[in-house]
């Protein structure tokens, strides 16, 4: 199959994701910002939840995709799966960072502090550190085969570690700080559920769409340079013959 046919196919496919994401996000933003009532306890500030929680969910979804992709890569050694892993790690890192950022903005009016060692914030920080470590690791390996393999190993170990980190941090928090600061004030009523659901679905679709674009980007980049490299080598070859 020629490259541009592959790309055509992916582009046709990804349109559904992009369009779906746009529709869900627009509807979610409308309902979340305008169409829904303020929360009894938190007032208008609860609207931050509709952007913060979907970002956080999506980054976890992204990490799951990364772990599955890494396993798949170690099994099949398919370079495009590795491109997908690299893409999903970068996107997950961005989503995690944004989830942390919006979480901090939410924390200021509700808890009156930008940062607290809340279990969820802490485990997301560790998640972000792991993802940044993954991306750094990949830049420090010369051989692309090794780069993919090492990345996959780190991703899998980190994925197994994630629930353990979460539980340990949660126990640690409950030990040191009674439940004065928590999100228990927010009971999920149906009024909150609709925008939350719309935004969550929209964010997941957006993430899938971005993932497709980024995978395509890395794949095309690798392809173009591999071809260029081959041409360059052939150029050397023909020069040495003459």
């Amino acid at each position: 199959m020629t490259i541009h046919r592959v790309i055509r196919k992916v582009q046709r496919f990804e349109g559904w994701f992009g369009g779906g994401a746009a529709l869900c996000l627009i509807a979610g933003l409308y309902v979340g910002l305008i169409g829904s009532p303020p929360d009894y306890y938190q007032g208008e500030v609860v609207r931050i939840m509709y952007i913060h929680v979907p970002l956080a969910h999506t980054s976890l979804l992204g990490y799951t995709v990364l772990a599955v992709g890494s396993l798949w890569y170690l099994w099949k050694r398919d370079p495009i799966v590795d491109n997908m892993c690299q893409a999903v790690a970068a996107l997950s890192a961005v989503f995690t960072a944004l989830a942390l950022g919006t979480g901090m903005i939410w924390g200021k009016p509700t808890w009156d502090t930008w940062w607290t060692w809340d279990a969820r914030l802490t485990s997301f920080t560790v998640l972000l550190l792991i993802l940044i470590g993954y991306l750094m690791l990949r830049t420090f390996v010369d051989d692309p085969e090794k780069e993919a393999r090492y990345g996959a190993i780190l991703a899998i170990v980190g994925f197994v570690d994630l629930p353990i980190i979460h539980f340990s941090v949660e126990w640690w928090r409950t030990l040191h700080q009674p439940q004065s600061i928590s999100m228990r004030g927010v009971s999920i009523s149906s009024g909150l559920l609709v925008p939350l659901l719309l935004m969550s679905v929209g964010m997941s679709l957006l993430f899938s769409y971005m993932l497709m674009v980024r995978t395509q980007l890395l794949y095309l980049d690798r392809l173009l340079h591999a071809k260029k490299g081959r041409l360059l080598s052939q150029f050397h070859l023909s020069k040495s013959d003459s």
């Binding site: 910002l33 208008e44 500030v45 931050i48 952007i51 961005v94 944004l98 919006t102």
Partner: peptide
Amino acid sequence: IVPNYGFIAGAYLLGLLPLALLL
């Protein structure tokens, strides 16, 4: 309750703008 629209606007901008630029 005293509203905090600045925080809401900030959160939505921070959440969506970087994603749009990246995309």
